[in-house]
Amino acid sequence: MSVFPYLVAGWILLAGLYGLVTSRNLVQAVGCLAVAQSSTYVLLLAVGYRSGATAPVFSDLPTDAPVVDPVVQALVLTDIVVGATVTALLLSLVIQLRKRHGTVDPEELTGLRG
């Protein structure tokens, strides 16, 4: 149990990268990037977890209760926003690329090489 969450995070990262490497569709590649990113959420929150503790939100909790690490949660919040906005930007690039190039298959994007 003590390493299982970390291993899951690593697994998700590798799965996302595998998807990116073998992708045949740019929309799908952007989705795979989102998958790879979710490994960071899992790792950070697993790092911040403390057994027997609860969320550091004291509106319904005595202030001396044991709580999990709030810092990683703030980091993951930032991370999620960053991920969503980057996804949006990349997808808008895909839309325009499809119009100009006529395909969303990355294997056919050979305009820049050599």
Binding site: A46, R50, S51, P56, V57, V67, D69, P70, V72, Q73
Partner: peptide
């Protein structure tokens, strides 16, 4: 997993409570 060593987290909780913020995040 679930360890109890979170120095920054503990400082952050104390600082947040000192600033009258119930939601430390």
């Amino acid at each position: 997993f679930g360890g109890h060593h979170h120095p920054y987290g503990e400082r952050a909780v104390a600082a947040g409570l000192a600033r009258q913020t119930a939601n430390i995040i």
